[in-house]
Design a protein around this nucleic acid. Sequence first.
DNA 1: ATGAAAATTGCAAACGTTTGCATGATATTG
DNA 2: CAATATCATGCAAACGTTTGCAATTTTCAT
Lengths: 348, 348
Amino acid sequence: MTIRTEKTIVDIADELGLSVSTVSRALNDHPNISAKTKERVKKMARKLGYRPNAMAAGLRNNKSKTIGLIVPRISMFYPAAISTIIQNKLQEFGYNLIICQSNDSLEQEIALVNTLYSARVDGLAVSATLYTADFSHFDIFKQQNIPLVFFDRVPPKDYNVKVIKGDDFLGGSLATEHLIDQGCKDIVHISGPLTCNLYKERLAGYKDALQKNKLPFKKQRVFFHELTKENAWQTAEKIFSQKPYPDGVFATNDTTALTILEYCRKNGIQVPQQCKIVGYSNDPRTEIVTPSITSVDQYPTTMGERIVAALMDLIQAKHPAAYRHSQEIVPIHLVERESTAGAGKKKK
Amino acid sequence: MTIRTEKTIVDIADELGLSVSTVSRALNDHPNISAKTKERVKKMARKLGYRPNAMAAGLRNNKSKTIGLIVPRISMFYPAAISTIIQNKLQEFGYNLIICQSNDSLEQEIALVNTLYSARVDGLAVSATLYTADFSHFDIFKQQNIPLVFFDRVPPKDYNVKVIKGDDFLGGSLATEHLIDQGCKDIVHISGPLTCNLYKERLAGYKDALQKNKLPFKKQRVFFHELTKENAWQTAEKIFSQKPYPDGVFATNDTTALTILEYCRKNGIQVPQQCKIVGYSNDPRTEIVTPSITSVDQYPTTMGERIVAALMDLIQAKHPAAYRHSQEIVPIHLVERESTAGAGKKKK
DNA sequence: ATGAAAATTGCAAACGTTTGCATGATATTG
DNA sequence: CAATATCATGCAAACGTTTGCAATTTTCAT
């Protein structure tokens, strides 16, 4: 039933009495082809409505001009912001982007790695699942020497691979220190699964800041949950189920910070007077809520640009030696807002 | 320098002393192949670490198992929410998704259509640019009978194609009527470029509601801008540059509504007492801001699911007759919040 | 005009699959 | 046991490009 009307390079060749090789070279501006032949060919291509078949070219060249991206979910602010940048940047380089979501499921992540490999993407950028501890399903990419870049949620150092991440230790420490500077003495930290480097490092930063400021680290003042809104609400209930209330909360993501704020507002706990709050990622929502929430900005634009730069680098170079561990750190900075306003002994 | 280690179907055949055709059929569970051969082949495939080459298969079959998606930008709530759903749904059907952003540039949109065609996507879903009036660059897809679905921002009826859209007329009218019900007499509407069906229809809904309630439609109470935050702020300044202030504002998107609220708060205009506000899309930000903003929910999940359903339908059926105009309407509903609380003569 | 160098074009194989048709092997029937 | 039906496998072409090498044409100095 399908009416074949797709024009190929062969049609152009026939029409012009040329060989397919000449047509191919003409379309690709090969130096061996005379200017006037190129013109003739291109004109005919336009006339026939010819569009190159990327799959055929890809098969022959063993490259797809396509990059794969795996993120937990594209509806979350930080990965969404990064995806946007990556997509736009890659477009400039003539690459397509296949965006996939693991939905934080290891099983889905594994499946995606395989389909993206099957699609023969020329490179892969990944922010792993919360629970990815074993990274061996990414081995094919290393074996076949296909550019592979991890960002944000990354594997441990011994999984030799290119890594671009934020300075989560510094972020955790700055956030905590800021709360201390604003007068907090009893700071709760809400963390995530420690399988994930992010939360481990932010927690370490939190500990470090307490220590440097001679405040005790208390195990029971650290809460763990799985970073959904529902869980955050439960954690809030736990935190405020008994006195004394903390005078500061450092949440490891903004959704949690927003939920804590909501809980406080609904339960008459004054923010920032009674309890100060800091979040992480500088989600736009933290800015518009009342009071606005102090948060750690992760420069998603920089992150996205660096990811693309790294991929393009690896694609160009492509000497098999590329698979050593190499880590790039994207800076962070604290955006101070109303949720941490206070007496504020100023920083020295 | 590259070490070829990619295993192909030929390697499996050699290893087992079978022909490639048998291997191919075995891997695809063709009925003509005996159970034990299938087992042997699959086992060897696993052992060799074989991964199918999607490009080779695609070239042969003339299908890529890939769908293209073009949206203005994936960082905006509504398209982002839809993309999420589409991606997850397609994954279930074994399709990859190439997400592209036109950045509301017609030029980029045209380029994207061509690359996606070159990639030989098996289907294309599009939410057009604000300024796309001529849709002829999508003609190739129609000519080649490749499933094509427009959603949200869609072409006019005479561009015979499958269309899935929200009920924007109803949305505009419900929003306006709600403001009237809450006691507003002088309602400003902030619209977008009328090249885009969405804004035209919401505006029509606004007019209709005024008329039905015997309120005058005044041209100078409708403002047009390009829906960025900066422009929204300028529009706010224009609106409140002279008295009388409007007692209601119906903004055609949430970013604008949020900006109007911000302006009001900074300038001591009480919301909702002095001025009520309604937005469009039910962006999560409208819920958390103070006061929370009434907005029109567009059921992005439903939209995403319908898009995928439509694409899969077209892919299955594929009788060339598919290119008649066909329109599907996704319902909307008004989510009432604090920004329109008021006397409220209740609806009959 | 001659020959060699330079510029342009063509031939044919290859990329990794899938599939119509033919062939070979096994089972079934009278 | 032959003849036939059924099942399992193989052959070879095709999908639309790209590219090394060979062949042809043009250019240019002698």
